[in-house]
């Protein structure tokens, strides 16, 4: 069952969250609140999709790290998708991609969740 919203899409036990076109402090906090809400509801598989995100600033990145922290140590699964090259490079530069798998699309991320080993996908 799919439930689609402007900011997220629920797919069975997984949720795809869509980041804003500019991920700054305000938009980052909104994203974090959305994550918190789903985590509270017991959702443990999250995909953050950046297909619409052209720009990310360092505060936005700090917030993403905060989200990663919440899912650390087997508490959940987190994947990123749709990163533009510049943002992928930044995530690489700052070491985020070492801890979170990155896929081209949310669909690819979903497949990875369905087929991959949960341990490998768990935020380290």
């Amino acid at each position: 069952m799919k439930k689609k919203n402007r900011n997220f899409m629920e797919m069975e036990d997984c949720v795809v969250l869509f980041a804003d076109e500019y991920l700054n402090d305000v938009e980052g906090e909104k994203l974090e609140e959305l994550c918190d809400a789903f985590l509270m509801k017991g959702v443990k598989k999250l995909i953050i999709d950046f297909s619409d995100t052209g720009l990310i600033n360092s505060v936005g990145i700090s917030i993403l790290v905060g989200i990663m922290d919440k899912l650390k140590g087997g508490k959940g699964v987190l994947l990123f998708s749709g990163l533009k090259k510049v943002n992928h490079d930044i995530f690489n530069m700052l070491g985020l991609t070492k801890n979170v798998p990155v896929c081209k699309t949310p669909q690819e991320a979903l497949k990875m969740i369905e087929g991959g080993s949960p341990r490998k996908l768990t935020v380290q």
Partner: peptide, 20 residues
């Protein structure tokens, strides 16, 4: 300040500028 274990969450702006 690159993410490694319990990394710092701020102060990446300059690192980013230097990398870009």
């Amino acid at each position: 300040q690159v993410l490694e274990g319990g990394a710092e969450k701020r102060g990446w702006g300059i690192e980013m500028m230097r990398g870009l």
